[in-house]
Deep mutational scan, measured.
Amino acid sequence: TGIVNVSSSLNVRSSASTSSKVIGSLSGNTKVTIVGEEGAFYKIEYKGSHGYVAKEYI
């Protein structure tokens, strides 16, 4: 489990790349469930599926 550490919002992406499609966003202080790691990204549970967020903001 981690907490989103941004002042505005954090993009949730379809894969572990900054060039991948943005599938949603999370507000600061949102609790997320981390299910894996891939490079500079965490794989998280997101809306019944999975998404990826940059580690530096969790």
Rank of each mutant, 00 (worst) to 15 (best):
R13C: 09
N5M: 11
I34M: 03
R13S: 06
Y42E: 01
G36V: 03
R13T: 11
T18I: 15
V32P: 02
K55A: 05
A40T: 09
A54P: 15
V12M: 03
L10W: 03
V22S: 07
I58D: 02
V4A: 05
G2I: 09
T33F: 10
Y57R: 07
S49Y: 10
S15A: 14
I34L: 05
E38Q: 08
A54K: 10
S49I: 13
S14V: 13
S25W: 13
N5G: 06
V4S: 06
E38H: 08
G39S: 05
G48R: 05
H50E: 08
I44Y: 00
G51K: 01
S8Y: 10
L10Y: 03
S7H: 13
F41Q: 02
Y57V: 05
V53G: 01
V22W: 05
I3V: 13
L26V: 09
S17L: 07
S15F: 08
S49Q: 13
K47Y: 11
K55Y: 02
S9M: 12
Y42Q: 02
G36F: 04
G2W: 05
G39H: 06
I3E: 06
V4R: 04
A40V: 09
N11G: 09
G39W: 04
S17Y: 06
S25E: 11
K43P: 01
I3L: 10
G36M: 05
S9L: 11
G48C: 08
R13N: 09
V6T: 14
K43R: 10
V22E: 04
N11S: 12
G24E: 02
V32E: 00
E56F: 08
E37S: 09
S27K: 15
V6S: 12
G51A: 10
F41H: 04
Y46F: 14
S25M: 15
S25A: 13
A54W: 09
L10P: 10
Y42M: 04
S25Y: 14
T18K: 12
I34T: 02
K21P: 15
K55R: 08
V53E: 00
V12I: 08
S14G: 08
I23T: 03
K21T: 14
I23E: 02
E45H: 08
G51P: 00
S49G: 15
G36W: 04
I44A: 00
S9H: 15
E56D: 08
G24W: 05
K43N: 03
Y42D: 01
K47E: 14
T33Q: 10
S9T: 11
S20L: 02
T1K: 10
S15K: 11
T30C: 09
K31T: 13
N29W: 14
I34G: 00
S17W: 04
G36I: 03
N11M: 12
V6L: 09
K55P: 01
Y46L: 03
E37Y: 06
I23A: 02
V4G: 05
V6G: 11
G24P: 00
K55T: 04
S7Y: 05
T33Y: 10
S27R: 13
Y57N: 09
Y52A: 00
V6K: 12
K31D: 05
G24L: 04
T1G: 07
R13I: 06
G2R: 07
A54V: 10
N29T: 08
L10F: 04
N11A: 15
G51T: 01
V35C: 08
S8N: 12
G2D: 04
E38R: 06
T30N: 06
G51N: 01
L10C: 13
G36D: 08
S27M: 14
R13H: 15
V4M: 05
K21E: 15
N11V: 15
K21H: 11
N29Q: 12
K31V: 15
V53A: 04
Y52D: 00
K21Y: 08
S14D: 13
H50F: 15
V12W: 01
I23G: 01
Y46R: 00
V22K: 06
E37M: 09
L26T: 02
I23C: 05
S14T: 08
L26I: 11
K31E: 11
S25H: 15
I44H: 00
V32F: 05
S27I: 10
I44S: 00
S15P: 01
K55C: 04
V22G: 03
S8W: 12
I34D: 00
I34H: 00
T33A: 09
N11C: 14
K21W: 08
S15R: 12
Y46A: 01
S9A: 12
K55I: 06
S20W: 04
T33W: 10
E37I: 10
T18M: 15
S7D: 12
I3G: 04
V12E: 00
H50M: 09
K21G: 09
F41G: 00
V53R: 00
L26G: 00
S15T: 11
S8V: 13
G2K: 06
E38D: 10
I34C: 03
Y52F: 12
T18C: 15
H50P: 06
I44T: 01
G28C: 12
S8C: 14
K47D: 12
V22L: 07
S20A: 14
S9N: 12
G39Y: 05
V22P: 06
I3A: 05
T33N: 11
E56P: 05
V4D: 03
S9W: 10
F41Y: 11
T18V: 13
V53Y: 00
G39N: 08
K55H: 03
K55Q: 06
E38V: 09
K47C: 14
V32G: 00
V22A: 06
K55G: 02
Y52T: 00
V12A: 01
N11E: 15
N29V: 07
S9P: 11
T30M: 09
V22R: 05
N11D: 15
G2E: 04
N29F: 14
K43Q: 08
V6W: 05
T1N: 10
S27V: 14
E37N: 06
K47W: 07
Y52I: 01
H50T: 10
R13E: 03
V32H: 02
I44R: 00
V53P: 00
V53K: 00
S8T: 14
N5R: 13
I23K: 04
E45T: 08
K31S: 12
S19N: 14
V6Q: 09
T1V: 15
V4N: 04
S8F: 11
S17Q: 08
T30L: 07
